[in-house]
Design a protein around this nucleic acid. Structure first.
Lengths: 148, 148
DNA sequence: GCAATATGCTTGCATATGCAAGTATATTGC
DNA sequence: GCAATATACTTGCATATGCAAGCATATTGC
């Protein structure tokens, strides 16, 4: 194995899987959120009016539209998001971040940040962290709106 | 959002999700493999005797033991892996890479490499690629045996 | 040696997710 | 204006996955 692109892709996926696995347990136990639900809230918070249509959420989260429909339903029951329709296009069903959702998201962000610091630890220099940040940004910047 | 660790973790997960999503379709269509099945075969190929117990596979793949059990069953029917037991410990049930599995894995590696090259494209310099590789290696090297 | 505990695997159940089909609404071509 | 097509969402079904319980085998403490 010498293809540097392949190596990078493998390491990218493995490190992301590891991080997600470590995050997952505490997230559901402490915040009652799956990692994907966390990302859904993050996308909403970043969006104008704190809302996005289901298809737009699906694109940004790399999941199917039906998954967004099914994720939103229980989150709506919990009051983390609410549903809004568009006055001009009756097909659209926005998912809107609520007050409670904002609060919950804020708590979850603490946990996320803690795990992120644990992952990089104090063995990473500021320069290395910024270097990685810059390189990863080239990966996410190209396509869709991202969370950073 | 200014915490550089958080930003890195977010970008890491988003870029990995994007890569996985792009890979997923062609993988199942062309090779009849899910991305996770690909990783399972990769771990086997890297292991001594091309075999690993189910719990060891589970650890390396960041999934539960039951998931490995259920992934291995259909792959065994397809002949991609076979089952072996340990002469000293009757609890162990190794998953062993077969000839057919090696062949299939080799084909899938081509697709993986193609997508990896597409992802990084020609806009990445050799230096940047090696820089990223080095940084990501710090993330995966700490814990479990990895694929690179 | 035996009971207590630990480990490896499997299975029942619940949740998560994608795909394809169905429904409702918008847009386009004419 | 209307038919044809496109888009947004939902739902039925199939697959994927985790957790907890169950079972078999190993190891440990005595």
């Amino acid at each position: 194995m010498e293809d540097i692109c392949t190596i990078n892709a493998l390491r990218l996926m493995q490190s992301a899987d590891e991080f997600r696995a470590k995050l997952s347990g505490e997230f559901s136990a402490v915040h009652g959120l799956s990692v994907n639900e966390y990302f859904l809230l993050m996308h909403l918070q970043k969006a104008p009016l704190n809302r996005l249509s289901r298809v737009e959420l699906a694109k940004r989260m790399y999941v199917s539209a039906s998954t967004v429909t099914r994720m939103a339903a229980p989150m709506e029951k919990l009051g983390l998001v609410r549903r809004e329709s568009d006055s001009r296009d009756a097909r659209l069903a926005y998912v809107v971040l609520s007050e409670a959702g904002t609060t919950r998201l804020g708590e979850a962000k603490m946990t996320f940040a803690k795990h992120a610091r644990d992952t990089f630890g104090d063995r990473w220099s500021r320069t290395e962290l910024e270097n990685l940040s810059k390189l990863l940004n080239r990966l996410v910047a190209g396509t869709l709106p991202n969370l950073t």
